[in-house]
Nucleic acid binder design. Structure first.
Lengths: 207, 207
DNA sequence: CATAGCTTGTGAAGAATTTCACAAGCCTCC
DNA sequence: GGAGGCTTGTGAAATTCTTCACAAGCTATG
């Protein structure tokens, strides 16, 4: 299949958010223009994004909301649930472990890990915090597909190397560090400092 | 000034992270190639990114680490400190309020707001949680430039409208909602579901 | 001072992404 | 059943972003 741009995938995810909203409001169909307005893009962009994967609408009518939701969920790979491990049960890790959004979006937290014995044993949203040393064995046993890193910056690369060695191929990194991973491993980093600095730049260079 | 791409600004921020690392390790100069390797890009990209803002290196030598740090901090607008308010003192809001990275990167949390009377009064990292109703008055008095939204999805747009009306021009949104803001207001949304879905897509369409 | 060895800064080329614009198709209403 | 009014899907054009490639310039060395 042709390569799909990262920006396209993010927009598809965003469309899915809005479609779910539309469905809750009882709308049966939606046009590319309406979807575009919600997502801050253009109708041509919406149609082009979808066209990479097929043809989902009806000319003159628009898209069936629930059909398009199903199609997007299929495209994004959300038909099965994805098991996830969270490494690091500090402030951010604990907050994420208790975040309900994981479950409602098809992701199951199957393990939370920490090196601090004081935190081990604690249960976060029903999932007990387990010792960091258990990480490899648990990945082998529970086969999570995604690891979420919430460890201090300097620990992030070593932990990444460990989870990759244990078979993980997708990582969401909240540690303030830029990571390098082998070919075939997808890493997304969410860096608070960078987000704030982009805002500072925007404010500094305001019109 | 010519328009600077978002991706360029994010890379500048990333370069700054690495330069700080290099400086801690005692390196005095760095070449575009070394900086590129750390940041997962190319030397040409590094030089092009910097060239939008001027000429910072010495041919044959590279860049002076501390000079380039100073230049980047100037470019990104990090020479002064930026006051920030956090709206929502739930799990994520509280975790952020206690995150040390704000302070070390030049951002000061001057207020945390919540509607829940049980949380009001609590002090997070020295900053007391104040009643949500106080938000507008405090923005007028303390003049924060950035608002971080950690409220439930359905509350995000109303809160955004309020902080914009009160004079805020830059918003970092952690609520699971896509927001619309008037011209001149920069909004960055960090959406857990989208990040995870991009990973699910990558895993589903793995080679 | 001339040469060798690096590395920057930058036009130009190339690639990727977004926007345009329009034929094709569906529905409704007369 | 034909006309009118919408909306999709998609090549082509336009724009934006990245990579290439090389002249220019700095340092060190003999």
């Amino acid at each position: 299949m042709k390569h799909i741009a990262d920006s396209t995938v993010r927009r598809l995810s965003l469309y899915l958010r809005f479609l779910e909203e539309f469905e809750r409001h009882g709308h049966a169909t939606i046009s590319s223009g309406e979807l575009a307005r919600s997502g801050g893009t253009t109708s041509a962009q919406v149609r082009k994004d979808l066209s990479f994967f097929g043809s989902f609408g009806k000319r003159g009518l628009g898209y069936g909301v629930s059909d398009l939701i199903a199609s997007l969920r299929h495209i994004l790979g959300l038909e099965a649930r994805w098991p996830v491990v969270i490494v690091g049960a500090g402030k951010i890790g604990a907050a994420l472990a208790q975040y309900r959004g994981f479950g409602t979006h098809g992701f199951d937290v199957v393990g939370v890990y920490d090196t601090d014995p004081a935190r081990v044993g604690e249960a976060l949203n029903g999932v007990p915090v387990r010792p960091d040393a258990q990480l490899e064995a648990d990945i082998a046993a529970l086969r999570p597909r995604i690891a979420v890193l919430c460890v201090p910056g300097e620990a992030a690369q070593p932990v990444l190397d460990r989870v990759v060695a244990a078979g993980i191929r997708a990582v969401l990194n909240f540690a303030p560090a830029a990571l390098t991973a082998p070919e075939g491993v997808t890493v997304r980093t969410v860096n608070m400092a960078t987000e704030l600095e982009v805002l500072a730049f925007a404010l500094t260079n305001a019109p």
